[in-house]
Nucleic acid binder design. Structure first.
Lengths: 355, 355
DNA sequence: TTGTAAGCGTTATCAA
DNA sequence: TTGATAACGCTTACAA
């Protein structure tokens, strides 16, 4: 904190838009279905039907009811509804990390789809311990949600079963898994590598290198990358395997390491977002021009990196598409339609100014 | 999309942890309070009390009940509870933008506080039109939340009244406003400028300059900056007012503009996150060393910029503190305690490697 | 400290 | 196509 800071000032005030419309004030009791029924001269259950299954109500009656609903501002009590019907209109979304745009984009896109259909989204975070996951699932069960969307895959069999036993649409996502709880939206990491190789080949690079993690998804990306390179008769000129992919600095040092290995590369596929940025920064700091001197292809979600690397081309996934798909799968199911059990989201090449 | 992309591959599969624990399967009906009561040999209402107002139940009874709860895995039905009591245990959080870490950090911090107290968070987004805001508020009212936290200020008087009429704790935040709906957590932009000036002065800079927006918060920050500079007998050596603050490029060009203006500055306060980064990048690109050749002080939230500018010092707000405070204010109120109507969050100087 | 009775607002079920 | 009745599971109000 400031050493010689004066008292807080309230001098920076945001203007408030004044409006003198209907000046009705105080806590008005919400309108109940019974009142709507009385005013429309029907029974409560008919009002309920007019709102939830309009087809079951004659047009004349329906019209009258909707007018009254409009006038009174009636809004059904979701708790009463959920209690009686055993199902709420809440779609629970669990993101792995609220701070990562990857996931919030997906959540946002999902929300857009479901909210347009009268459902509400409730966001939670799962990335804690398994016990935290258990608690989350228990309170979830109590909430009796209409559906669940997870930006990830549940691994613990016990938790998987609890979710399955909810008997509602459940969408897992992000990674492929042999046996989804219910539905899955994922993308292929091997394909990501293939797409990177294809792009570099198409751009005329002849000596591509790779920087990425040695295990997990990094390995899969490298696998696809080499496979496609050889199909295009290109060598994998060099590669640096790193463990740390948490910082830009990791990318810078990996890039230097690649140079120090002595191989003569003309382009690099960096199979992780921060690695790509780091490589780009390091190359720039050395005075190399991109893509004239070296081609750099990153990985990730444009939105994450837009502020930082508008010039970097990326292989990645449009995560909002994952969310949108999830939302649509959920809607289909809730409407009693068929929905695919597994959906593979397209990878895309996000073209920056460079490479 | 890739031109010669093959069909999607399902070869990258995540391993699933198998567990052969209790193999009970199928949809089991949730335990109801009545069953817990029967097993503990008390009435349902006593179970209810043991869980919500433990003080009202004798220790012996309470212990017995909690045991049964544990065994049965009882979890109260929030809808029944909300229906009867007219109040749910959901705290509604509306963020201005789900994609900005500023806000999601606050939401996350708020969630941590309230979830530790048995409440649940429901996140929504407000940054749409006023009509969208109205719909959000209407469904909000139907949800009968325990409290509301907004990462922003509601301006439309009609919407303000609707929220006020919910008669529940409501926390607005971020900006100061003359007349909060209920409670407010905000910070002072004038103070931000003062803090920047203090810091640069303390670090021995003699010719500070300013880059920022001409209106709104930028203006307030400049105001505090100049005020405090003159208190420290320092001149405002130069300033560049920009309209665009959406990209790093804006910061780079503003920095060049400052140089072109011919003034001889030894440090700059960039009153916006991207401007600061841009200035830092531009200075670096020109081969200037920070802070030896020029001191650069940015503005914002460390988390936003950590990946990008770990070396940049920042004046800003710990937005998770805003969320935490909001959560605590809400809890106090729900517990019938007094809570401040307006809380001013401390600005802080986030010291990077530089400046 | 504990219990009884009633009702929150909706919708499932059955009947007309 | 519409309605009567009961019930969802909990907690308020009052009583003991």
């Amino acid at each position: 904190m400031a050493d010689d800071m004066t008292a807080h000032s309230f001098d920076d005030v945001v203007r408030i838009e004044e409006e003198t419309s209907s000046s009705q004030t105080g806590r008005s009791k919400p309108v109940r279905i019974e009142e709507v029924a009385r005013l429309a001269d029907v029974s409560p259950i008919t009002v309920s039907r007019a709102l939830r299954n309009p087809d079951l109500v004659s047009e004349k009656t329906r019209k009258r009811i909707l007018e009254v609903v409009q006038e009174t501002g009636y809004w059904s009590n979701p708790h009463a509804s959920a209690l009686r019907s055993g199902r709420s209109s809440i779609v629970a979304v669990f993101v792995s990390n609220l701070l990562s745009q990857q996931y919030t984009r997906a959540a946002q896109a999902c929300a857009q789809v479901i909210e347009a259909n009268g459902l509400q989204m409730m966001v939670g975070q799962t990335s804690y311990s398994y016990s935290r996951e258990l608690t989350a699932i228990q309170s979830l069960r109590a909430l009796r949600p209409a559906a669940v969307f997870l930006t990830g895959v549940i691994e613990l069999e016990e938790n998987r079963r609890m979710l399955r036993d909810l008997n509602i649409p459940i969408v897992e996502s992000w990674a492929h898994t042999r046996d989804p709880i219910d539905m899955l939206v994922a993308f292929s990491n091997v394909d990501a590598g293939r797409l990177a190789a294809t792009h570099l080949a198409n751009r005329g690079f002849k000596r591509p290198a790779f920087i990425g993690r040695g295990g997990g998804r990094g390995k899969l990306r490298l696998q696809g990358f080499t496979e496609r390179l050889s199909q295009r008769d290109l060598p994998l000129t060099g590669s640096v395997v790193v463990d740390q992919v948490e910082s830009i600095e990791n990318g810078r040092s990996a890039y230097r390491k690649l140079q120090e290995s002595g191989v003569s590369f003309d382009s690099v596929f960096c199979a992780n977002d921060l690695l790509g940025i780091g490589a780009m920064i390091e190359a720039g700091a050395q005075g190399q021009r991109i893509p004239e001197d070296v081609g750099i292809l990153g990985f990730g979600d444009r939105s994450d990196l837009a502020a930082l690397s508008p010039r970097l081309s990326l292989v990645g996934v449009d995560t909002s598409q994952i969310g949108r798909q999830a939302g649509e799968m959920i809607l289909s199911r809730l409407n009693g339609e068929e929905a695919p059990e597994r959906l593979c989201v397209d990878l895309s090449l996000l073209q920056g100014v460079t490479t």
